[in-house]
Design a protein around this nucleic acid. Structure first.
Lengths: 132, 132
DNA sequence: ATCTCAAATTATACTATATCTAAATTTAAA
DNA sequence: TTTAAATTTAGATATAGTATAATTTGAGAT
């Protein structure tokens, strides 16, 4: 709980019970959360929390760089607690998205880019994950 | 009109007035179309066309490789008449997405990928486009 | 040419996701 | 304690997409 509070403060986010509850959910182990998943879990701790509040706070956390918004296949939005740069691997069989370490992929661009000044990039890979 | 019909046939798509109208819109000059944009334009030619029909046919065209589905920032889905492999550049100032030639970017992967067998990839670049 | 019928396709109605609005409540500073 | 600003709530609305019922298509039989 103290960790969470410290983290919110570090990111310039004011404290409310709703925000603490949302942060407790999204900063847990799993790294990709849909808004509705978060809402359902937060409701267990705070039954009166409204859906709009969850959405508002998730988007605030993105704006304050506590989370990153990621787009899955089909346009579904999830919130990612890993804000460090990383790439994504989409397992086409399971539909699962996995984080790939930044250094695992090297990207070089050529002059053919022309007018585009690249500030940031991310590689989306598709394929399958070998059986464990 | 004949071009459109030939194209639909090549891709194994049966002919209906609705499909011809949708194809006429999306195979025009601009390369990224939202479903609702398509619907509005198609309605001008076929006022009874339903939204579901437009969605159904856009998704069919993707399935038959006449179009490619692309996900924009925020999870918005657009349909792209350029089905050749290409990368994307998102202009952060205008929110516009631009196609980048495949060869303009080279990607190498390393062992750190581990379990992931990459079949396909795409690079999403962000930045700005120099003034014209 | 016409009819039949199953499959394909479209339209109607419904659902999912996300955001807006105004009122109510809480926060944080004085 | 007060107060202004921030935040949440509850309900409505916007955006996007889909399920199901209705209609059309296409092939084969007559």
């Amino acid at each position: 709980m103290e960790d969470i509070i410290a983290k919110l403060r570090e990111h310039g986010i004011g404290l409310t019970p709703q925000r603490i509850a949302v942060a407790q959910v999204v900063l847990r182990d799993r790294s990709h959360w849909s808004a509705d998943e978060v809402w359902q879990l937060v409701q267990q701790r705070l039954p009166t929390v409204s859906r709009a509040t969850v959405y508002n706070n998730l988007n605030l956390f993105v704006a304050k760089h506590l989370l990153k918004e990621q787009i899955l296949q089909g346009g579904h939005v999830v919130f990612d607690s890993c804000v460090e740069p990383h790439h994504h691997f989409l397992d086409e069989q399971t539909g699962q998205i996995h984080d790939v370490p930044w250094e695992a992929v090297r990207v070089e661009t050529h002059d053919a880019l022309g007018d585009f000044e690249v500030r940031d990039y991310q590689v989306i890979m598709r394929g399958r994950r070998r059986n464990h």
